[in-house]
Simulated assay, not measured.
Amino acid sequence: MMESATNLRERRRQESAERLIELAREWTARDGFTGYTVEELCEAAGVSRRTFFNYFASKEDAVLGILAPHGDDELTQTFLDGGSSAGETISDALVDDFVALHLARWEIVAPSASDVRAMKAAIEREPRLHTRIFEMIQANEQRDIALIEQREHLEAGDLRASTLVHIVGAFSRATAKEYFADHGDAPPSIGHFSRIFEQRIAAARELLI
C-alpha cells in the first residue's frame, strides 16, 4: 500500500509538472514572459502557486523543463559506489560509469520531438532563455565535476574530472542534434540516442587511447 501511494504521488507530480511546462512553452511562444503571470499559469494547470515553486524556480525554468533536483538520487549513489578507495588510482570503470549515469538521466528527462519544437518556439520569442540555458549547462557541469572528484577522491580542480564532464557534455549536445534531425515528427527512440552517443564515445577512445 505504501509503495502504491508513493507511485501515485510521483505520477501526479510528473503530470502536474508536464502540464505546467506545456502551458509555459505555449504561452511564452504566443505572448512572451510579460503576457502572463505565474498565478494564471497555475490556475490553468490546476495547481497552487506553492506547487509551481516546488517544481520550478521561475517561468524560465518551467519553459526549459528544469525541475528542482528530484528522481536521480539512486543513480547518483550507484555512480559514487563504483569509485576507487581513497589513495588509489582512478577506477577503471569511471568513463563507462559516467556515461551510464548520463544516459540513465536522459531516459528520465528525454523530450519528444514536439517538446523540442515547443521549446524552440518559446526561445525564439524570448531569446534571453539562451542565457538561462548556458547557466544550466554550467551548473550541471560543476555538479558532475564535483561528483567525479568525490567518487575518485580527487583534489578540487583535477583536470581529469572536468575533462570527462566536458567531453561527455559536448558529445551529448551533438548527439541530441543528430537524434532529433533523424526522427523528425516520428516518436523518438531512447535506444537510438544511446547508440549515437556510444558511437561518439567509441570514436573518442580510438583517437585518444
Rank of each mutant, 00 (worst) to 15 (best):
L8C: 10
E10M: 10
S16K: 12
R19G: 06
L20Q: 01
I21H: 00
E22S: 13
E26D: 15
A29R: 10
R30M: 07
F33Q: 09
Y36W: 14
L41M: 09
A45Y: 02
V47Q: 06
V47K: 08
S48G: 12
R49L: 09
R49W: 08
R50V: 14
R50K: 14
T51V: 11
Y55H: 13
F56E: 08
F56G: 03
D61I: 07
A62M: 12
L67N: 00
A68W: 01
G71L: 09
G71P: 10
Q77Y: 03
T78Q: 13
T78P: 00
F79S: 02
L80V: 04
L80F: 05
L80Q: 03
G83M: 03
S85N: 05
A86N: 11
G87F: 05
D92F: 10
D92R: 08
L94I: 01
H102Q: 12
L103R: 04
I108S: 06
S114E: 14
R117C: 09
M119W: 02
M119P: 01
M119A: 08
K120P: 01
A122T: 11
E124K: 13
R125D: 01
E126S: 10
P127R: 04
R128Y: 06
T131K: 13
T131F: 04
R132H: 06
M136V: 15
I137Y: 06
R143Q: 04
L147V: 07
Q150V: 04
Q150L: 09
E155N: 10
L159Y: 09
A161C: 11
V165K: 00
H166S: 11
V168C: 09
F171V: 04
S172G: 13
R173H: 12
R173G: 07
R173C: 06
R173P: 02
T175E: 01
A181E: 13
G184T: 04
S189L: 12
G191V: 04
F193C: 09
S194Q: 12
R195G: 08
I196H: 03
F197S: 03
I201W: 05
A202V: 09
A203H: 15
A203R: 15
L207F: 14
L207G: 15
L207N: 14
L208Q: 12
